[in-house]
């Protein structure tokens, strides 16, 4: 499902990253560990097609991300890759369910309100669907973010430090939710983190150095 070949990235002259090749099948999980500044977020952005690598290729669902033009890549990403960022951002003017529907809309899919309600229900957010996102607690925001990342049934889910702000209890809960949701749609789940707690949860690991 996800495959990379000799990815490289550099910021100016002083920082050059050479990333190990990555492979992750549909329905399986991969943990990418590394210290701060090692290029974890950069790698995740390359995998998600947010930036183009300076060298190498990324294949998602057997399609080379390099082969897409800008708008095509946006569409492909919207439909096939769900991304969870370190911090939770939402479209502020919209309520919880509208944020999900907008995500559906931008991916080019038909908006399916029932699907969105179903996912929010599963994530225990059924009573918050009309809330403004800024009124939610951190835990709820995290769950909405997860809901948003799976709403389009992507083939690949990328999570950037999903647990760094959470205590042990919530950390475990969020990761298991994420696993559940990825499992349910048979998506490959790639988690990038420096959080050592996750080592015991996701056995399949790559360490950046």
């Amino acid at each position: 499902m996800l495959k990379t070949e000799s990815l490289k990235y550099s910021y100016g002259n002083n920082q050059t990253f050479d990333f190990p090749d990555i492979h992750c099948d549909a329905g399986s999980k991969l943990l990418i560990l590394g210290k701060s500044g090692i290029g974890k977020s950069t790698l995740l952005h390359i995998l998600g097609g947010l930036i183009k690598p300076k060298g190498g290729n990324v294949y998602v669902d057997n399609k080379n991300l390099n082969s897409f033009s800008g708008a095509q890549l946006d569409k492909f990403r919207g439909a096939n890759i769900g991304i969870i960022f370190q911090r939770n951002h939402f479209v502020r003017s919209l309520n919880v369910i509208e944020n999900l529907l907008l995500t559906q809309k931008f991916s080019g899919e038909k908006t399916d309100r029932n699907e969105a309600l179903h996912i929010l229900d599963k994530l225990d957010l059924g009573h918050k669907i009309y809330n403004k996102t800024e009124d939610l607690s951190e835990g709820e925001k995290q769950r909405v973010t997860i809901a948003r990342s799976v709403i389009n049934k992507p083939k690949l889910i990328l999570a950037d430090e999903p647990s760094s702000a959470l205590d042990d209890f919530n950390c475990e809960k969020v990761i298991s939710l994420l696993e559940e949701q990825a499992q349910a749609i048979n998506a490959a789940l790639v988690v990038v983190t420096h959080d050592a707690r996750l080592k015991d949860i996701i056995p399949n690991q790559i360490v950046l150095s």
Binding site: G78, H89, R92, T103, F106, S107, R148, N152
Partner: peptide, 18 residues
């Protein structure tokens, strides 16, 4: 104030033109 949500829309599949 909205650069994050604009980026987020892009991640969700919105194009630059959108």
């Amino acid at each position: 104030e909205r650069k994050y949500e604009l980026s987020l829309m892009r991640v969700s599949g919105a194009s630059r033109s959108n």
